[in-house]
Amino acid sequence: MVPAWSRCLPLVAPLALLLALALLPAVLSPYLMDLTVKILVSAIFALSLQLLVGTTGLVSLGHAAFLGIGAYVTVLASPQGEGASLWWLLPAAMAGAAAYALFVGALSLRTRGVYFIMVTLAFAQMAYFVFHDTKLGGGSDGIYLYVRPVLRLGDTTLLDLENKRQVYGLVLASLAFTWGLLALLLRSRFGHALQGIRVNEARMRAVGFRTYGYKLAAFVIAGALAGLAGALFAIQDGVVNPELLSWHESGAVLLMIILGGLGPLRGAIVGAVAFTLLKELFASEGLVGPLAAHWQMTLGLTIIAFVALLPRGIVGLRWRRGSA
Rank of each mutant, 00 (worst) to 15 (best):
R318H: 12
D141I: 11
D133W: 11
P91G: 02
S48I: 09
L86V: 00
L159C: 03
T178P: 08
F66E: 05
R205C: 08
V37C: 09
A293R: 11
L216A: 06
R112P: 08
L23M: 07
C8K: 10
R210D: 12
M33S: 05
G227Q: 02
V75P: 08
L28W: 01
F233T: 15
T120Y: 13
G196P: 10
V288T: 12
L86E: 08
W319L: 12
L61S: 01
G316T: 08
A293D: 11
G300N: 13
Y212V: 03
F45D: 10
G289E: 12
H63Y: 05
M126H: 06
L161S: 12
P30Q: 05
L232E: 03
V130Q: 11
I314R: 01
G251C: 02
V37P: 06
M126W: 09
S60M: 12
L51C: 12
L186W: 03
G313C: 12
G286P: 00
Q80T: 09
L145M: 14
N163W: 11
M94N: 13
G322N: 08
G138M: 08
L184M: 07
T211R: 02
A274K: 01
A234W: 03
T55E: 11
I257E: 01
Y100M: 15
A274Q: 05
L21S: 00
A224E: 04
G169M: 07
A65T: 07
S188H: 05
L47R: 04
G68H: 06
L151N: 09
N200I: 04
L259P: 10
S29R: 14
V73P: 00
V114G: 00
G300R: 09
S48H: 06
M33A: 05
L254W: 04
G54S: 06
V73T: 14
G68N: 03
A26R: 14
L301W: 01
A97D: 07
F177P: 00
L278C: 06
T74R: 10
T156M: 10
L76C: 04
V239K: 10
V37T: 13
L121W: 15
F282H: 02
L21V: 03
R205M: 13
I39E: 13
V73G: 07
T134F: 00
L172I: 11
C8F: 14
V207F: 14
L299Y: 09
G191P: 05
L9K: 14
L291D: 10
L11W: 07
L15D: 07
A92Y: 08
T276K: 13
D237I: 10
A77E: 02
R112K: 15
G70M: 02
R148K: 14
P14D: 09
V273C: 01
G154H: 07
G286N: 02
A77L: 14
P311V: 07
D155L: 10
H248W: 15
V53C: 13
E162M: 07
R205V: 07
V240A: 13
L255V: 12
V27C: 07
L170F: 00
F282C: 03
T120C: 04
L228N: 11
L172T: 12
P79E: 01
P311R: 05
L52P: 00
L86C: 10
P25A: 12
L17R: 09
V207M: 14
A226T: 00
V75Q: 05
A218L: 04
F275E: 01
M256T: 09
G208E: 09
